[in-house]
Amino acid sequence: MLRFVLIALGAAGIALPAAAQVPFPAEVRTQEITTNGATIHVRIGGTGPAVVLLHGYGETGDMWAPLAADLVRDHTVVVPDLRGLGLSSKPETGFDKKTQAGDVAGVLDALKIDHADLVTHDIGNMVGYAFAVQHPERVKRFVLIDAPLPGIGPWEEVLKNPLLWHFRFGGPDMERLVAGRERIYLDRFWNEFSATPSRFSEAAREHYAELYALPGAMHSGFAQFAAFDQDAVDNKAFLAANGKLGMPVLAIGGEKSFGPMMATVMRFAASDVTEGIIPDAGHWIMEENPTATSAMVRSFLASQ
């Protein structure tokens, strides 16, 4: 189905995104999985224990190519694009993270994977937490990277940071303001949230800007943020009903971004938290220091 959609877009004169600049290993295939009211574009490869990699805003599952190339040697790697982003479908609703946790469950069910490790970044953290807190028996270990959880710990203080103005960017004209200017809008985040902006390469910027210029993508991105208030309500309810997560958690912050605050946040939501800091990196750690990030994640997933 996705192939025909892409052909139709090309026929309509809509430019399609170039291939990811850092390719996935040849053994990684793609599959479109329809579940929970969306069609999720998923990359799957390797054999061994399953690990699910969830991306955040400003990127797609393509961000995980360097880590997937490492893990695919001895893991089954599952890399979805979140609903509304990348090459997944663009539904009108369902951008609260509780619903998107259902997308993750549906993908794993379709692949006949009962349990997995989770590695998540940015909004992927929020989707991953909603999945882990509802399905703790399916998550063996959980790595969260450099973003807060709505309603958890110092969330209200986080919202006061002026760098996070986009959390509240909304209104009837927001999509019209950025239409055709997606690269300008996204460059702001890639530059301001990097320790060294030049490490977020020009090729990667072009690739993601084209993906976010696809019909419905910016609408979906704004909807991810608009759902934060509901996510906060849901997360508080999850915590009250289920208590803290019990599986081992690695909370990673970029040295020039969340740093140790990532572990501080997660100690409000999990009982077994290990702190990790990626040196010489801001928020975009897979672009800024992929070697250190991959080594830290692999070490944690290998731990007993």
Rank of each mutant, 00 (worst) to 15 (best):
E287L: 04
L164E: 04
A232C: 09
R188N: 10
A295E: 14
D74S: 14
F131A: 06
A130L: 03
L163S: 15
A105G: 14
F4E: 14
F268R: 01
N235R: 04
F95A: 08
I152C: 05
E287A: 14
V52K: 03
G276M: 01
W284T: 00
V249G: 02
V297K: 07
I123V: 09
M286H: 12
W165M: 09
G221A: 13
T60L: 05
L87G: 10
E156M: 03
A232M: 10
V297H: 09
V127N: 06
E157V: 14
G246R: 15
Q224W: 12
S88T: 05
E192V: 14
T93N: 13
A110D: 06
T291V: 15
Q304C: 06
T274H: 07
H135F: 06
Y212P: 09
V28Y: 09
A226Q: 15
L164H: 10
A50E: 13
K244V: 04
N242S: 05
V297N: 08
Q134P: 03
R83P: 12
A19N: 13
F24D: 01
G171R: 13
I277H: 00
L9A: 11
F228G: 02
N235Q: 12
Q134K: 09
L16R: 08
G216W: 01
R168N: 11
R3F: 11
G276P: 12
L149R: 02
Y185I: 00
P136K: 08
M126N: 07
I184P: 01
A68M: 07
A116W: 00
T196C: 05
K236N: 13
I152D: 04
A232E: 09
H55T: 00
A240C: 11
W165H: 13
R181W: 11
S294R: 14
P66I: 10
S194W: 11
D109T: 15
P215C: 08
Y57R: 01
E157D: 15
R168W: 09
K236G: 15
T293M: 06
G254W: 01
A147Y: 12
V28P: 07
D234C: 09
G94S: 13
G56L: 00
A223R: 11
F24Y: 15
E175P: 02
E182H: 11
T76N: 08
A19T: 12
E287P: 04
S271D: 12
K256W: 07
S271W: 03
I123Y: 10
K236T: 13
R73H: 06
E157M: 13
D70L: 12
F222Y: 12
M266F: 00
P279G: 12
